[in-house]
Design a protein around this nucleic acid. Sequence first.
RNA 1: GUGCUCAUAGCUCAGUAGGAUAGAGCAAUCGCCUCCUAAGCGAUAGACAGGGGUUCGAAUCCCUUUGGGCACACCA
Length: 569
Amino acid sequence: MIDFKNEISKAIEKVINIDSKTLNTYIEVPKDFENGDYAFPCFKLAKELKKSPQIIAGEIQEKIELDKKNIEKIEVVGGYINFYINKETIAKEVIDEISSNENYGHSNVGKNKNIVIDYSSPNIAKPFHIGHLKTTVIGGALYNIYKYLGYNVIGVNHLGDYGTQFGKLIEGYKLFGNEYDLTENPIDKLADIYKRINELCSEDEKVLENCREDFKLLEHGDEYCTKLWKKFNDLSIGEFQKIYDLLGSKFDFWLGESFYADKTDEVIKILENTGKLQESEGAKIVDLSSSGIDTPCIIYKSNESTIYATRDLAAILYRARTYDFDKCIYVTSYEQNLHFRQIFEVAKLLGLDEKYTNGLEHVAYGMVRLPSGKMSTRQGNFVKIEDLLNDTIKEAKKIIEDKNPNLEDKENVAKIVGIGAVIFNNLATSRIKDEIFDIDAMLNFQGETGPYLQYTYVRTKSVIEKVSSIPKIEDINIEVLTDKYSQNIIKLIYKFEDILNQVIDKNEPSILSRYLIDLAKAYSLFYNENKIIVDDENIKNARVFLTYAVGKVLKIGCNLLGINMPNKM
RNA sequence: GUGCUCAUAGCUCAGUAGGAUAGAGCAAUCGCCUCCUAAGCGAUAGACAGGGGUUCGAAUCCCUUUGGGCACACCA
């Protein structure tokens, strides 16, 4: 499609002696379309050119040569030059592109680039609670969007299947495993064991020592410990898969921490050779104070077992070699901020190419808290994802019974809507913000929510169904789409690809979520103001096509976020 | 204490690499289905934590105060 902004900066370049790339960064989009589609503020140039912004603007306006077909009008207001895109041209551009491109917004900017995304990564034997929702859906959305932009994406579920927590579980199982029947709801039972052993540990340092010892045994291949560990794993993964099936989460690899157990020796060896590995209080550490990190990174514990940092470093080595990544992003809560700063710093000592160490990125998100306080598996204070999804699905079912009782396939639609509500809720705001979990907000399907997007989509489908076919592009009279409601929609559709680029630029799916809300709102307004199916073929064809275009972008966008779209609801 | 981070309307949030009058949604009150799904649309009302600084221009950048959150060596 035509890059209008670029057209403008190239035209300005010819008038003043500044290269168009710089000018491109000056051009902005006014908040209000009344002030044009693009604006060039002349204030920056005032000092340089020793003229007032108004005069500069006037001079540029006078001398600039623009293709009327692209920019139909320019106006000087204050120190701004406002540019108005030719309404018919942009409408035609969008309609041509929508009708010719099944994958609207798709691109190849990521061609030949490998992106590893480490996400979801729940801990074995712990309940899958709403604290894990963000990493799962943010990672999933980023996965889809990178892929849509042509990147080669490798999604890894870095399961927490190793470490002292397993020592604790093993020790707990030894002590009171016989009280539990693990054939039903195994994770709940394991979580209970975990809770109890933690209580013991905080009372008695000796118990904690035993746990650490159990993990050491596991790490050194002890048969009993390994057998138990495998059992816990199998039970847990089965439970996780149920949730992933509901959420539609997929991974290219399930490689938990244990996968790197035999790869940590090399990390230790490399670090030893750098001379940066020091003894401290019996442990082996890398001091990072010269990099401005006060806390040293522990590589090898004093009881001669590894720690998660060691395994994460081994994973970096492995991923660099196996996937040759350009970027490796970790989607976890900001709790782990220090940890990632540490290992990214230590990774520089592993002798890897800078490409890899520069490509490491921690994509952090805010904490989810319950109204009753911080969630804690140890203390048994959490909401399970499964329970939440069941609640929202139930609510969706209730609303369907109320509003559309004759709907076909109600169960399935309720599922799509209920789950969509949860996914959208987790992607709707900047990821860094903390969230106090609010079940009432989650169950409210009004306003800026997943169901609103789905509902708007369903309306577009309904219109299309009524007219039975999508109008041919040659039957569309562009003039019909020059009114403000249509133009609003067209301009939004026009910038879809740009939105996707912004998302990966910041690893921020909420940019897409917000955009889809804007699009749905613009369509709802259009829908409310206009009768779409009218006798006048001219008007009908254009409006129906616009409806089709909105539906298409809503569906592509929502699917990228991991939200399914019902045809009716 | 040190580091990171957040602070915008009663509540939940937008605010695009500082730009033209700070936008939504929820909740509340009131309107709109003889018409393509009212899970919708419209109206009313309300805000940049305090103080400095940089700049032609600051919600946005810097400093500082206050208040939340998180982390700070053998958990992940």
